[in-house]
Design a binder for these strands. Structure first.
Lengths: 286, 286
DNA sequence: AAGCATCTGTACAAATTCCGTACAATGAGG
DNA sequence: CCTCATTGTACGGAATTTGTACAGATGCTT
C-alpha cells in the first residue's frame, strides 16, 4: 500500500488504475470526482483517497451505471458492495441476520423460520440472499473448516435454508422468458449458492430448470439438448471438480452459452466465462 | 442516507429487467408505473425502487394479469421508498396480499390460489395467516358492514380460504402433544379465525380436534368428556352467542381448562379466560 | 538545452436517449 | 362480421452524454 503522503502524478495514477489521463481530467472537470492538490508548477498531485475514488468509479461503471451517477456515488465514498451497504444502512437487516444465526447455531427451527419470515417480509429476496443468507453460509463454511462448527450444524442450517429457498422457487420454470439450465458439477454437493443465483435469475424473468447437486455431465448435456436453454450454468466450490469436465463443457459451449460459477470457477475454464463469486451480483450481470 | 440508491439510465434498466426501453417508457406514460428522476439533459434516472416495480410488473404479467392491472398492483406493492421499507414495510408480503385481494375481489379463483401458493411457499403459515389472511378477513368484514362488499364476495372469499386452511390442517389430529378441542358457539358461522388458531396451535405441537361452526353445547361437552383434552376453545364473534352458554361452560371448566376466543370473547365470561383477539398471537401465548 | 510529462481549452464522434406518433396483433363486445 | 380498446413495438430527427483527441504552452529531470 502507498503511504498516506505518497502523492501521485496523473501518469502514475493512470497506470495504476488503467484510466487514461484525459479521462481522469474529464472526470474531475465534469463531475468533480477528484480534487487533487497541485504542485508548485500546477501539476495534479493525487492522494490515496483519490485512487480509491477512481477504483470505485470504475466498479460502478462496470455495473452499468452512467458516468455521472457513478461519479456521484463514488464521490460520496459509497462502498461498492451491495451487501455491506445494505447491512450498514439497515440495523433491521443486521438484527435479523443475528437472530437467524443464533437460531441456526442452536438448532432452533421455529426461531430460524420466524427470523426468515421477518426478513423476507421486510426486505426483498435479493437483499436477504445477498445480505444475510449468503454471508452466513460463507461464515459457516469458514467455521466448519476451522473446527468451530460441527457437521451436524452445517447440515441443519443447509437443509433448513434449502427448504426455504426451494419454496421461494416454486413455479420458477413458468413464464415466457429465456430458459436457464443449472446444475452442480459431479461430486459437488453445495447447491445453495446456485439456488440463490437461480432465484435471482427467475426474478429477472428467466425460466429455471434446476438439476441440483452432483449432476453427471451426461445428464446435463442430455437435458441441454432437449431444452435448448439460453444459458447453462455449472457450479462447483473447487476447481478440481471442474477440470475433468473441460472437454464435455467445451463441446456443450459450441451449442449453447455455458458459464461456470462458484468458488471453483476462478477466472473461467478453457475459454468458458466465469460468473462473479456473489450469486446476486452475478445474476444482475447476466 | 440517500446514497444507497444508484440511479440507472433506461438502457441499463432495460438490460437488467429484460424489458425494452420503449416499453418502459410506455408503462410510464400509460400507467404511471415509474416516476424516474431526470438528468440535467432530460435522461430518465431510475432508482432501485423503480427496478423493483418493473420486476413486480413482470411477475404479475407472467401470471396472466392484464398490463393495466399488473401495473396497478406493482405500483401499490413496490411503492415503498427505501426509507419506508426500512421502517418495516414488506414488499413481498404486501405484494402477495395485494394480489390475493384483487383476485378475491374479482372472483378469480385461479389467481387467488396462485397468490396463496406463492405466499405459503415464501412464508411460514403463521406469517401468512397473521400478515395477510386475517387482516384481509377483518377488512372484508368492514367493507361488508359498510355495504362496500357484497354477501357473495364474502362467501366466495371465505369458502376459498376455508378450503386452503383445512387443507393445511390435514393430519392435525396426529402426534403426541396435548390435545385441544375447538368449536364455534351455537349460531356462530365464522370459523376462519378459529381454524387459523388451530393451525397455529398444531404447529406448536398440539393435537387438534375441530368441531366446526355452530356447535351445540351438548356435543361439545360430550366430546370433551370422551377425549379429555388439555384445552377447550369456544369461539364467537358476538358476546350474545356466548352468554347463553355460561352455565354449561362453567360446568365444563370444572373438569378441563376452557377458554373463549373471537371478537365476542371480550375480557372473558364468568371467570373463563379470553384469548387475544389475534388468533396467531393467542396461540403463541397458550 | 533536450526530452518527456503535464497543463488548459476546445472539439469531435459514437453511443444513447428523448419525444411524438404510428402501426400490428389480440381479444372483448355489439 | 365489424368496432373498439388494449398493448407491445417501431421510426426518425434532435438533443445529451461521454470517451477521446489535438494544439500550443509550461513544468520537470537529466
Amino acid at each position: 500500500m502507498e503511504a498516506a503522503t505518497g502523492y501521485l502524478r496523473i501518469g502514475e495514477l493512470s497506470r495504476r488504475t488503467g484510466v487514461a489521463p484525459e479521462l481522469l481530467r474529464a472526470w474531475e472537470r465534469r463531475y468533480g470526482l477528484l480534487q487533487p492538490a497541485r504542485s508548485e508548477g500546477g501539476f495534479r498531485l493525487y492522494s490515496d483517497a483519490d485512487e480509491r475514488r477512481v477504483e470505485l468509479m470504475r466498479q460502478h461503471l462496470r455495473r452499468g451505471l452512467a458516468a455521472a451517477e457513478a461519479a456521484r456515488l463514488a464521490a460520496e465514498g459509497g462502498d461498492g458492495t451491495a451487501v455491506e451497504q445494505r447491512a450498514g444502512s439497515s440495523p433491521e437487516l443486521a438484527a435479523g441476520a443475528a437472530r437467524l444465526r443464533s437460531a441456526l447455531d442452536g438448532f432452533d427451527e421455529a426461531q430460524a423460520q420466524a427470523a426468515l419470515d421477518d426478513l423476507f417480509a421486510a426486505f426483498t429476496v435479493e437483499t436477504v440472499l445477498g445480505g444475510v443468507i449468503l454471508p452466513y453460509l460463507v461464515e459457516l463454511g469458514e467455521r466448519w473448516s476451522t473446527g468451530e462448527a460441527t457437521v451436524a450444524q452445517e447440515h441443519f442450517a443447509s437443509n433448513l435454508i434449502r427448504g426455504r429457498l426451494l419454496g421461494l422457487g416454486r413455479g420458477w420454470d413458468a413464464g415466457d422468458g429465456p430458459r436457464a439450465l443449472l446444475a452442480c458439477a459431479p461430486g459437488e454437493l453445495h447447491d445453495l449458492g446456485l439456488i440463490a443465483f437461480a432465484l435471482t435469475l427467475h426474478r429477472r424473468g428467466w425460466r429455471i430448470t434446476y438439476l441440483g447437486p452432483d449432476t453427471p455431465v451426461e445428464s446435463l448435456a442430455e437435458t441441454a439438448e432437449r431444452l435448448a436453454p439460453a444459458l447453462v450454468v455449472v457450479s462447483a466450490t473447487s476447481k478440481r471438480r471442474l477440470t475433468p469436465l473441460r472437454e464435455a463443457l467445451a463441446l456443450l459451449a459450441g451449442k449453447t452459452k455455458v458459464v461456470v460459477a462458484g468458488a471453483g470457477a476462478g477466472d473461467g475454464v478453457d475459454g468458458i466465462e466465469a460468473l462473479a463469486s456473489d450469486p446476486v451480483t452475478a445474476a444482475l450481470a447476466v
